[in-house]
Design a binder for these strands. Sequence first.
DNA 1: CAATTAGTTAAGCATTCGCTTAAATTATTT
DNA 2: AAATAATTTAAGCGAATGCTTAACTAATTG
Lengths: 107, 107
Amino acid sequence: MSRPVASADIFQAIADPTRRAILDQLRSGEQPVKQLAEPFEMSLPAISQHLQILCNAGLVSQQKSGRQRLYRLNPVPLQQVSEWVARYEPFWQQKLDALGDYLEENP
Amino acid sequence: MSRPVASADIFQAIADPTRRAILDQLRSGEQPVKQLAEPFEMSLPAISQHLQILCNAGLVSQQKSGRQRLYRLNPVPLQQVSEWVARYEPFWQQKLDALGDYLEENP
DNA sequence: CAATTAGTTAAGCATTCGCTTAAATTATTT
DNA sequence: AAATAATTTAAGCGAATGCTTAACTAATTG
């Protein structure tokens, strides 16, 4: 069998820079594959596979429109990431406060 | 070579669930490797390799203390993730608002 | 000093990943 | 109906990933 089998894991899905760039691009509205592929020096199938992974992770949805397929951003699963990382915010505040104090005491 | 070569990329570093769990564990303070490894059904070298990847990503630092090596959380690079994902918050707000409206209109 | 403890390095292996090219599918245009 | 356009499916490939076991290094203890 050949792959883009469901990663389905959000963290895995956003680990790849191309996929993050695709998501970034989709913030300006739904777009067909060809347009999404434009900024990348990569074959169309490669992009298609990335889109499938994003789809499996629930980060995009697609809708047929004539002979193109419009992909649309679904940001909801990113909340999972947001929530995870938010648990660390107190810690980096602390770190930065410590740095601030240090700089104050050692001008 | 079979190294845990420097990913150095934060998103890659947090893509693995074991590594995220290690980070989670480190929020309760610096810990030696053996203690960090305890919750996992995995060999010590495996954990050591994960720690090295976290180290390369700047997410942890280590400090020798006798014959143990204490690992400590450094959350600062996670801000990168936080900033990236924050750009999507307006979008999921929008999504949830739409859902809310829908539910109000279709009780 | 020999034995033990804590951890890392090294080497190897199976699986997954990101990509490619070629072929297939589906819809539109001529 | 034939040609073209948009995209996916398929197959394959090299590199990276996550793990293992075995061997090594360094600090502590008996």
